[in-house]
Design a protein around this nucleic acid. Structure first.
Length: 417
RNA sequence: GUGGGCGUAGCUCAGGGGUAGAGCACUGGAUUGUGGCUCCAGCGGUCGUGGGUUCAAAUCCCAUCGUCCACCCCA
């Protein structure tokens, strides 16, 4: 019988990695809590139209990367390729936007049908943060400060740098796009194939091209930053002033264009050089028009998302330790009822202590072997003699201390330290 | 969607037409109440899958799936 395998690009998180993931998730939640953001949990499945409207019909994500299928009643549903659209939907649906200043975060799996590679899976995980109803540039900066604190808390601050840009208002973005296309039309025959294709789909993206001739052409292209209207320019100045005031280092990247249609004004990316081709660990920006597009009252919004797999890879490059070892291993050479009861008693007396009990039985020798391999620091030994005398032997598996025969009270006292 | 590398034991890999291998891990023993070091023995694979060529295929050919890396795109 052939065994069934997991779906391509959808990976299992195995026990030897799960503590690392939990440690990272815990740290992220702690930082989010201390900024006063609240968790929101939304379905992984939404009506397809939600994503089409939010992300943009012409984007790759919508055009060819969504897991879309028909529900039994004929509705077109899609596994979420990102979190913001669903959060916006939920906020509108439950009237959360009537009070300005909603601050939420979400966490969970996202799905995109892409070819897997380093840092890119078909089911991947994101933490995301969204703020609604606050127009002021101070929000942009708070979110960036939150990111910076996060990298520090995770011990990867030295590996990540910040890039920012302003896309301007949706109108000025459109004007600029026309200007750029006009400029590039004059050089179309010199562009590489990819860039020529992008001329139609997403011309701003051509700034990212790695082809040298294309880069030369782009060097003389009109700059988005130069065509910002007055409000957007002032707003971007203010973001930079506040970043400077907080001492947050950044680089302005005029070529920084987010992929999804809903972004405008401030956009930013946290980037690393340590993960190969997928260097963006976290990215986001303002989406002031998105709530309206989804049928809500015009409400400014801003948010970012970070890829948990990419975070995990970065943290793994450090020496960060997330222990998985039991503290105590119980070796029981008598009827298992006594071993199980001893383990329960220790758990009662030493809350939080990780207690493993040998369940396979066998000789002292084999049980001690398992005790050693479990990584436990100490073994509690229960044999016929101990049982008869109502004592246990406690043995230090990692040090030189000689083993001791103790009463249960005394042993619990030692373990509780 | 495109291109390239790789699929042999739980893991890391050798073997490239003629009986399926090593190290590590695992189980047991040397040591009938004590792990780690050592030694001995054992368990474990229709060589990713399907087809083809051949007297004979893990090995050559085709297809397919998976994986890794890059492009594209993105977190």
């Amino acid at each position: 019988m052939k065994s069934v395998q997991s779906v391509r690009g959808m990976h299992d998180l195995l026990p030897d990695q799960s503590m690392l993931w939990r440690g990272i998730e815990h740290t992220v939640r702690e930082v989010l809590d201390c900024y006063g953001y609240r968790e929101i949990r939304i379905p992984v499945l939404e009506k397809t139209d939600l994503f089409v409207r939010a992300i943009g019909n012409a984007t790759d994500v919508v055009e060819k990367e969504m897991y879309t299928f028909e529900d039994r009643n004929g509705d077109s549903l899609s596994l979420r390729p990102e979190g913001t659209a669903g959060v916006v939907r939920a906020a509108i649906e439950h009237g959360l936007l009537h009070v300005p200043g909603l601050k939420v975060w979400y966490h969970g799996p996202m799905f995109r049908h892409e070819r897997p590679q380093k840092g890119r899976l078909r089911q991947f995980h994101q933490f995301g943060v969204e703020v609604f109803g606050i127009e002021a540039p101070a929000v942009d900066v708070e979110l960036i400060a939150l990111g910076e604190r996060l990298w520090k808390a995770l011990g990867i601050g030295g590996r990540i740098r910040l890039e920012i840009n302003s896309l301007g208002s949706p109108e000025s973005r459109r004007t600029y796009r026309e200007k750029l296309v006009e400029y590039l039309a004059g050089h179309e025959d010199q562009l590489d194939d990819d860039s020529r294709r992008r001329l139609k789909s997403n011309p701003l993206r051509i700034f990212d091209s790695k082809v040298s001739r294309t880069r030369q052409i782009m060097a003389d292209a009109p700059r988005l930053t130069d065509s910002l209207d007055e409000d957007s320019a002032r707003r971007f100045d203010e973001v930079r002033r506040l970043l400077d005031a907080l001492g947050i280092a950044y680089r302005i990247n005029p070529g920084l264009v987010r992929g999804l249609d809903y972004y405008c004004e401030t956009v930013f990316e946290w980037i690393t050089d340590d993960l190969g081709a997928q260097g963006t660990v976290c990215a986001g920006g303002r989406y002031d028009g998105l709530v309206e597009i989804q049928g809500g009252r015009a409400t400014p919004g801003i948010g970012f998302a970070m890829g948990v797999e990419r975070l995990v890879e970065l943290v793994s490059l450090e020496d960060a330790q997330f222990p998985t070892r039991p503290a105590v291993y119980i070796v029981c050479a008598v009827d298992p009822e006594h071993g199980l009861a001893l383990a329960e008693e220790i758990r009662n007396r030493c809350p939080g202590l990780e207690v493993a009990c040998d369940l396979s039985g066998g000789s002292f020798k084999s049980q001690f072997k398992r005790a050693d391999r479990s990584g436990a620091g100490k073994a509690l030994v229960l044999g016929e003699d101990e049982l008869a005398d109502n004592m246990v032997v406690i043995k230090d598996l990692r040090g030189e201390t000689a083993q001791q025969r103790l009463s249960l009270d005394e042993a619990a006292g030692v373990l509780a330290r």
